[in-house]
């Protein structure tokens, strides 16, 4: 790889490592696995760099690679078996106790519900509501039609509601998601 290309990749990787790891964490629910997914995805982007660097939306290309990497890993049975919805206790001592309690409660509820829904629906929820991608961008990342994104989003939100209800959070479900 030429030095200019290497420099461009280095800048891209530094700027995107954090966001990719956060998305990966929301996909899989484990920071160590998320780190592996981010690294593996960036290696794939690096290998394809000479072909892909002229793309307008490289960040979305990297998200696409991340999603495929995660789904591929999920196909491996030892990965399927290690899935866990256990919520770790990671208190933030610097925050206001009331604020912290409310935030932790919301976080734990959402995390448990998110990990309970099917992977592709989880992915679409993360891409739409965490990465703030449009329907068209999400379709590009998921390599599907915009109609599929809309239906998967609707199913994902339904599944999220069901998971919240199953977790005893019916009050949250009553306040419906905006369409």
């Amino acid at each position: 790889m030429k030095e200019a290309q290497a420099r461009a990749f280095r800048e891209f990787a530094v700027a995107n490592a954090g966001p990719l790891r956060r998305s990966a964490y929301l996909f899989c629910g484990d920071w160590h696995f998320a780190e592996d997914l981010m690294q593996a995805s960036l290696v794939k982007v690096y290998r394809a760099w000479s072909r892909v660097q002229r793309q307008d939306r490289l960040g979305n290309y990297a998200r696409q690679v991340l999603l495929r990497t995660w789904l591929d890993e999920k196909r491996k049975p030892w990965r399927r078996a290690e899935f866990s919805a256990t919520v770790p206790d990671t208190p933030d001592v610097s925050a206001d106790p009331d604020e912290r309690a409310q935030r932790d409660w919301t976080r734990d509820v959402v995390r448990t519900a998110l990990l309970a829904i099917p992977p592709k629906q989880r992915a679409v929820v993360v891409l739409r509501y965490f990465d703030d991608l449009s329907v068209a961008e999400t379709a590009q990342v998921m390599r599907c039609s915009e109609g599929t994104v809309k239906s998967q989003t609707a199913r994902g939100l339904d599944a999220l509601r069901a998971a919240l209800r199953a977790g005893g959070h019916a009050d949250l479900v009553e306040r419906k998601f905006a369409s």
């Binding site: 790891r21 919301t106 509501y129």
Partner: peptide, 17 residues
């Protein structure tokens, strides 16, 4: 839970990264 609460909830999940 509103759409905004969902966004906040997702953002809160990665606060302790």
């Amino acid at each position: 839970m509103s759409e905004q609460e969902l966004r906040d909830g997702l953002a809160a999940l990665v606060v302790d990264e």
